[in-house]
Simulated assay, not measured.
Amino acid sequence: MEDFAPSPLPYGFGHLDDLMEEAGIDVLLVTSKHNVQYLLGGYRFIFFSAMDAIGHSRYLPIVVYTRGAPERTAFVANRMEGAEHANRPFWTPRFLPVAWGTEDAMAAAIAHLKAEGPASPRIGIEPSFLPLDAARALGDAFPNAPLVDARGVLERLRAVKTPAELTLLRTASEKIGASMAATIAWAREGSTKGEIIDRLRIEETERGLQFEYCLLTLGASHNRARSPRAWGPGEVMSIDSGGNLDGYIGDICRMGVLGEPDAELEDLLAEIEAVQRAAFGAIRAGARGAEVIVAGQGELARQPNRSCTDFFAHGMGVITHEAPFLMTNHPVTYEGSDADRPLRAGMVLSVETTMLHPRRGFIKLEDTLAVTEQGFDLYGGDGRGWNRGGTA
C-alpha cells in the first residue's frame, strides 16, 4: 500500500489510515488548499496563491480518500487544472477536472463517493474550510452519515516533516533573513513603513519567495500596520515577515536600528536573546512540548523588563500555526493539545519573544527551529543582533 503513489509523498497511507481509524473516520473529504496541497505531494494551482473567487462562487478543490483504499482516491479540480495534469499527472487514480464553483465540485465528490466509497461512511471534513452550500449538499446526499471533524487527523499527519520539507523550511527561513538584512541596510532616515515593506516584498520575490506579509514597527510605536510613518535617527525597527516557498512558510523577526545601538538597546535585546536561548535549550526529541514553554517563561520571569515582555512557541510548516500545539489561546485561539506529548525529530517550531518597551518600542526575535534527536537545528539564524540601517 505504501508504494501505491507513483512519486514520493510527505506521508504514508498506512499512517493516514491509522489516524483515520483512531478518529472514527471512513472517508476524508479534504477541502482546504493547504491540506489538498499536502495530500497531493506539494501541488499548487494558481488559486492557491491568489483570490479564488470566480463567477458566483469560488474555487473548491476536494481530495476524496477512503481509508485503506488509496487506489480509490479522487481529486476534484477546476476545469483549468486539466492542463496541470497534462504537464505533471496527479498521483490520484481518479482525476475529475469538472468544477467551476463549490456546488459542482461537491456534486462530483458525492458522485464519486457513492460509486466507490463505503455504503454508510463516516465522513471526515474540515468545518472551517467547507462552504455552506457544499456542506448542505453533502448532508443531503448522506443524511444518515455522521460528519466528523478531521482537522486533528490532518494536523497529526503533517506534524513530522520529511527531509525534503525541512529543506524547504530551512531555505525559506534563510531567504527571508537575507531579504530582511538587505531591506534594513537599504532603509534610511525618512524611509516610510510603506516603502520599507515594499522593498522587503521585492527582496523576497527576487529570492524566489512568495511574499506573504510584513509586520513592521519604527521607533517607540507598537503599531505594526503599514503607514506613512518615517524612520528617524536612533530609532529601532522590528521587521517580522512570512514568505512562502513551494507551499512552506518561513517566518522570522529581526531588529534594525538607524545608527549605532546604545547600551540600553543592547541590554534590551540581550534580554530577548536570553529567553530565546533558554527555550532553545529545552528542545529535543522526546522532551515534552511544555518543557519548551516552561524554560522560556522561567527565563523571562528573571528579566528586568518581564512586565512588558511576552514569550510563546508554536508549530509551523505548511501554515504558520500547526502541530505541535504547545500553548492554549496564546496568542491564537486553539488548545495546547501537544503540551504533554513528546516532541519528535522532524517537528518544526517557531519560538518568539516580544517586548513592548514603553520608550524604545517593539523589540522582538522570532526564530524557526527543527527538532532533532540531539536537540535542535536553527534555520535562518543570521542577523539576530542589531542590524544597522542605511548601510547599503
Rank of each mutant, 00 (worst) to 15 (best):
A105C: 11
D340G: 10
T354G: 09
S32N: 14
D262W: 07
A164T: 13
D240R: 02
A115M: 14
F376C: 09
P228G: 05
F376V: 14
Y38Q: 04
D133K: 11
D104F: 07
F48D: 15
Y59H: 12
A172H: 05
L113E: 08
M80L: 12
T102N: 11
T66Y: 08
R158N: 09
A323F: 13
G243S: 07
S57L: 05
D26V: 01
A345H: 01
T66W: 14
A86M: 02
P118R: 10
E81M: 09
T162R: 02
L16S: 06
L16Q: 13
A134H: 10
D382Y: 12
G42K: 00
P61N: 08
Y248Q: 06
P146F: 13
E2G: 09
A263G: 04
P97W: 06
S191W: 08
V27N: 04
P6S: 01
A230F: 06
L39R: 05
H34P: 03
L356Q: 11
T171Y: 03
R201V: 14
P97V: 09
D133S: 02
D246P: 01
A69L: 15
A108P: 04
P331I: 10
A115P: 10
K114G: 06
F142I: 00
T205V: 10
P89R: 12
F362P: 01
A339N: 11
V30E: 03
T328L: 08
P61Y: 11
M327E: 13
R79L: 15
Y38C: 04
Q303W: 10
S221V: 03
I110R: 11
S238M: 15
A145K: 05
I46K: 12
I363P: 02
N387E: 10
P228V: 10
W91I: 10
I46A: 13
S227H: 09
T309K: 12
A370F: 06
L154N: 11
